[in-house]
Each structure stands twice: as C-alpha cells, then as structure tokens.
C-alpha cells in the first residue's frame, strides 16, 4: 500500500523504513480487505493487528480500503529549530 502511494506521488501516510520496523506508517483499516506481512511487535501488538491496526508498508490491499493514519514521525531534539 505504501509503495503504491509513493509510486503515484501521493502523500498522506508518513513513509519510514518501508520494512515493518520503524512503525511510522501505522494506520487503522476502517473498511476493506487486506493481507499483511510480518510487522515489528514493538509497534503493532497482536491485539492491534487483530483490530486492523497495521503498518501500511507491510499491507497489501485486496479491495478498496478506508484507512485512518495513526503514525507520526517523532523529531529528534533540535530545540533551536523548533
């Protein structure tokens, strides 16, 4: 899903490692069918996965999906730049 978004030049879901490890592209699937590859348990618990909370980079849509973006990039402390 995330790769598709990037290839279309679209934005909306934050793009991180693209490998299921960093958790930045966390989304909630509100409606639709999909499958998922392995995702870091540091970011997606078993309960979350069961409730449709997934990482977009590991998600393959199998229908049109409605999603809600949950992930956000935490910036390193750079206080002079804030």
């Amino acid at each position: 899903m995330l790769k598709g978004m990037e290839q279309l030049g679209r934005k909306g879901i934050p793009v991180g490692c693209r490998g299921g490890g960093c958790g930045i592209c966390k989304i909630e699937i509100v409606r639709g069918d999909y499958s998922c590859q392995r995702m870091s348990r540091a970011h997606i618990s078993v309960e979350e996965e069961a409730q449709g909370v997934v990482l977009a980079c590991r998600t393959r849509p199998q229908s049109d999906l409605d999603v809600r973006v949950l992930g956000k990039i935490q910036r390193a402390v750079m206080r002079a730049l804030d």
């Binding site: 934050p14 793009v15 991180g16 490692c17 490890g21 960093c22 930045i24 870091s40 540091a42 990039i73 935490q74 910036r75 390193a76 750079m78 206080r79 002079a80 730049l81």
Partner: peptide, 24 residues
Amino acid sequence: ADRTGQAIFYHSRELNDRFMGVTT
C-alpha cells in the same frame, strides 16, 4: 544548532524528517 541541516546534509542543508525521525 542553526546549521544542523548543513552539518547533516552538506548540499541540501535541509533536515529531513524521515532521516531524523525514523529509527528502530
């Protein structure tokens, strides 16, 4: 700190959210 962008990427001089914020 005001030159952090240049310190990290000397050409673009821009901090990149993914580079700065994505970790494992």
